[in-house]
Amino acid sequence: MPVMARMAMAALLFIASTCLHGALLLAAALFRWLLPLPCLRRRLERWLPAIAESWIGVNGWMIDRFTRTRFIVEGGEGLRAEGRYLVLANHRSWVDIPVLQKVLNRRIPLLRFFLKRNLIWVPVLGLCWWALDFPFMRRYTPQQLARRPELAGRDLEETRKACLKFRQLPVSVMNFVEGTRFTPEKRQAGDAGYRHLLRPKAGGVAFVMGAMGDVLDAVLDVTLHYEPATPSLVDLFADRVRTVRVHLRLLSIPEGFAGADYTGDPQFRQRFQDWINVLWAEKDARLARWSAG
């Protein structure tokens, strides 16, 4: 099949599947809101991730059907669909999200991301993320904080509320620790000492671990690598991505991390930064080996 025809068919199937599953999600979310008894609402809450997992399954089938991309997945033994995980990954491109969803769908609970608040306006998907209780975060510029100091810490408060809800259900809290997609220019500007990664941003991860560490089963450390190195979604469906390599590693929650205060405890802050820097150094070495062939 010609590339343009394959991409057009994939786009049409994605739109049709998204609209169908989105309508089901919104109907279930509305029904949940109308139910009078909390026990019935909690039961219905299990339907919502199942609808999302069906949508992800269709997307994964499309990748298998419309591309010849080879997936190499290492590790991941012992994952549970009813578990609770903090998922940490490097961030290479927009392809990361469909790859993570494809590899982990139904092996762990539905991945939930912390999203920028303006993403709620993305057609169809924004309402689906809202129905699935994805937390929306508002980021403030230094100029806004200078004018309104009371806004400082508002994002941590939103994170705290999301973690309180996540404690009540099987969940996979997803965090791209670098905070932005990798480019050689960003790596050089950040001067982090890594060849294939940006400097990890520890604060958000530490806050989630402090709020939920006592109920998390494990940290799921994910390393992503592509050939070519930073593909786009167009590259994926144009069949220009030769290989996707994914390494999965389960890590226990370090002793003393659950309930700790990253902001107010300097000793814990240093210990947490040391822990995540070691994690990132190991990830960088793994990517170096893969890149060397």
Rank of each mutant, 00 (worst) to 15 (best):
R68F: 01
R68C: 12
R68G: 15
F71K: 10
F71C: 13
I72P: 00
I72R: 15
I72S: 11
V73R: 03
E74V: 04
E77K: 14
G78R: 04
G78F: 04
L79Y: 08
A81W: 11
A81V: 09
E82C: 14
G83F: 07
G83W: 02
R84A: 09
R84C: 04
R84L: 01
L86K: 09
L86Q: 08
L86F: 14
L88P: 13
L88S: 11
L88Y: 12
A89I: 13
H91E: 00
H91S: 02
R92W: 13
S93H: 06
S93C: 12
W94A: 04
V95H: 12
I97H: 06
P98D: 00
P98V: 03
V99F: 06
V99Q: 00
L100N: 01
L100A: 03
Q101L: 13
V103M: 05
N105I: 02
N105R: 06
R106D: 12
R107Q: 14
R107C: 10
R107T: 06
I108E: 05
P109E: 04
L110C: 07
R112D: 04
F113C: 04
F113T: 05
F113I: 06
F114Y: 08
F114V: 01
K116I: 10
R117E: 14
R117L: 09
N118P: 05
N118M: 13
L119F: 04
I120N: 07
W121F: 12
W121E: 01
V122T: 15
P123M: 00
P123S: 01
P123Q: 03
V124F: 06
V124N: 04
L125G: 07
G126F: 06
L127E: 10
L127N: 08
L127S: 14
C128E: 02
C128H: 01
W129I: 00
W129E: 09
W129L: 15
